[in-house]
């Protein structure tokens, strides 16, 4: 990028800055991990602070499960997230395809409905949603956690853009060969937008796994808790033992970090798209 070559001093400075930011962004996670591995006998408030546990132990992970059903929470989170991913991928792809490739009366109104839905902040309808769930006898169920975000308007518009960006030539050829709309959709259009579907899937999973406010409102029974509200509950019950809270947070965050490391490029690609979702 520069005309002249990088001077060694500059590159060293750059790496020093990178390491400083690294300490700030990763340090807190490592400190939490370290705390979660410290045994009951080890002073977690020791002064000066002890970064590496003297006798690392996994016992806190077993103990946290004695205090709250943390694996049950994890299972609930997983169920909700998987349902959310499936519904978003299927629903958004179908609707997006219709909006991008089909001509019908009322199409503009449908697009408008999705755009309006995008503008309504979830926080401003949560009370009304809660009322609905109650009258549908769904409050305190995992289904109620999934439903409001099951097909997000943003994902529909994202899929519409992806389909609209495809060349129409092949679909047209198959149309002439007698393929119906469903066949054109599943055999030709869908395989070409795999990348966008991956982005939709990953961001749906992440938003669902990390969601806090809505499950906090709609779930009352600890058996139904997802990990995020389960952790909040854990903090309320055993605030005294930081080791257990640390173990709980690591259980909640580890799957997502591993998923992120494996699928980095999709996470980065989805940033612009997910930006609007907030």
């Amino acid at each position: 990028m520069n005309i002249r070559a990088q001077r060694p001093g500059r590159i060293v400075l750059r790496y020093l800055l990178l390491l400083a930011v690294l300490a700030i962004s990763i340090g807190p996670f490592l400190w939490q991990l370290s705390t979660s591995l410290k045994g009951v006998g080890e002073d977690i408030y020791s002064y000066p602070p002890q970064f590496v546990p003297s006798e690392p132990t996994a016992r806190n992970y077993a103990r946290v499960a004695d205090v709250v059903p943390v694996w049950g929470f994890a299972l609930n989170s997983l169920l909700v997230a998987v349902a959310n991913v499936a519904a978003n991928c299927v629903g958004a792809a179908l609707a997006g395809y219709a909006l991008a490739r089909m001509r019908f009366f009322g199409r503009k109104f449908v697009v408008l409905a999705f755009v309006l839905a995008l503008l309504v902040p979830g926080e401003s309808i949560m009370i009304s949603l809660f009322l609905m769930m109650r009258s549908m006898q769904l409050s305190n169920t995992l289904l109620a956690v999934v439903l409001p975000g099951a097909v997000s308007a943003l994902n529909v518009l994202l899929m519409r853009n992806a389909f609209a960006g495809l060349s129409y030539a092949v679909e047209e050829a198959s149309l002439i060969d007698g393929a119906n709309a469903w066949q054109r959709f599943t055999r030709i259009a869908l395989p070409s937008v795999k990348g966008t579907i991956a982005v939709v899937a990953i961001f749906s999973f992440m938003f669902s796994w990390d969601d806090f406010l809505w499950p906090l409102i709609v779930l009352h029974d600890p058996d139904k808790y997802t990990l995020t509200i389960g952790l909040n509950y854990l903090q309320g019950t055993f605030a005294s033992d930081q080791r257990l809270i640390a173990a709980g947070t690591i259980i909640a965050v580890a799957p997502l970090i591993l998923m992120f490391l494996a699928l980095q490029k999709y996470f980065f690609r989805g940033v612009g798209a997910g930006a609007v979702k907030g």
Partner: peptide
């Protein structure tokens, strides 16, 4: 190209969720 109801069948899940759980509560 498609049957008259086809677009609405494709739209059904997404539109139903959006109308029912975003716009109606709004």
């Amino acid at each position: 190209r498609h049957w008259r109801a086809t677009p609405w069948l494709f739209l059904l899940p997404g539109l139903a969720i959006t109308l029912l759980f975003s716009l109606y509560p709004f």
